[in-house]
Design a protein around this nucleic acid. Sequence first.
DNA 1: GCAAAAGTGTTGCACTTACACCCATGG
DNA 2: CCATGGGTGTAAGTGCAACACTTTTGC
Lengths: 241, 241
Amino acid sequence: MNSEENKLILAAFKVGVNNVIFSVDSHHHQLLVLLVKREEKFFNNQWGLPGTLVRNGESLEDASQRILSEEIRVDNLYLEQLYTFERPNCNSKTSLDSFNIRHLSVSYFALVRFDKANSLGINNYNRTNWYMIQKVPQLIFDHNQILDYGYQRLRNKLEYSPIVFEILPDLFTLNDLYQVYTIILGENFADYSNFRSRLLKLGFLIDTERKVSRGSGRPASLYRFDAEAFAPFKNKPFVFV
Amino acid sequence: MNSEENKLILAAFKVGVNNVIFSVDSHHHQLLVLLVKREEKFFNNQWGLPGTLVRNGESLEDASQRILSEEIRVDNLYLEQLYTFERPNCNSKTSLDSFNIRHLSVSYFALVRFDKANSLGINNYNRTNWYMIQKVPQLIFDHNQILDYGYQRLRNKLEYSPIVFEILPDLFTLNDLYQVYTIILGENFADYSNFRSRLLKLGFLIDTERKVSRGSGRPASLYRFDAEAFAPFKNKPFVFV
DNA sequence: GCAAAAGTGTTGCACTTACACCCATGG
DNA sequence: CCATGGGTGTAAGTGCAACACTTTTGC
């Protein structure tokens, strides 16, 4: 087959999924991302996003969920497609991909509860670990780029969609909520008292009147998120912030 | 090979690209999308988004550009990845895809100048046509869904990025600009005079002092977009609207 | 002069910002 | 009774919607 003929032939692909899985550790005031150490010879123990190749009979999202449940034992709280990346010239570089098989990587984005997700390190010899977002090392392939893209998306989502409530317990204090926002968006996005009044005025946070005391100081009210009352704000931008 | 074994085997994919190509016909005050009539036997002359399968040696974006230049002879003005869709159970439905080849469709989104793009219908026997967005018929596969997704993206883009200037001539009146916005976003997004003052205050529209007269009425100033002056607004949301 | 289109100005209202202040609890 | 964190209130400033008004052209 000469090169002209080759050009008109349809490319054959294997498809992988990569997950950008975020979690918030409120206790240490840190945004975390899940990474996996790649011990295959080509990767030389570099870290990368948790991912896998798509198998027969499973959809892309299935594959993505499989990673979530294998690496951290967690029900999906929030999962969304991010972007499709092309692995550039992969076939010519690694002997794994002989025979002109090209690779595509569809990345997904997830936000999981830290307490539920924190049961890792078992049975995987520290192969999987949470990294603080500021301390992520150089990753394999283009995974740093994918991560950046996911981080961007996370911050956007936070501003107009109620994902936070997926990682907060059913009952939470307004300070809990505020903490998550500052951890992800940085300290200087709004004053706490203004954040409070703005959100409460919107009417989808219900005061249960129940109080919880955290050390000294006045006990805080526990609130819950009312999904029905939120409905009118769906797709309306900048509900929060 | 039994079904258990089959499940662990990596799926093989062919990858297609589909383009959601929008254009604005200011003269008829219409938002248009480019469709292609599919004359293959399975599609029975139904319309669909212009697309193609990815060939050897070309990247996904290459393939997408190829469509742009084949269907309408146009340099890329704006091209962006939209979303990756999975063709559900395609292999079991059409005899084309025997042998467990699955299909993935990566969709791209483009906005092209109408005058430049309007040189179609030549040599293609009305196979390609612009459709008003409200009059799009039932399309093949999930193309209606992809189109909706693209339309959504277009409206979002319009609000925080300067894509409009890619489809406007170098010199344009503020009314030209306003027209494009109302065509895409609908009439009730802002009053013309407020739109004017808000945009002018931002300082990236330069009044060239040149005037143009369109029939009766006071002649309008021609403006140009100053990309440098726009720089500080990059990624800042809701610059327009 | 009159209609039509371009462009300017004004006013009220709503919302944000930056604080100051009050409240309830633990020690 | 004071430190601590929770919660309320307010005054100044900003931004936008609605709409009235002025300017410059063709006829």
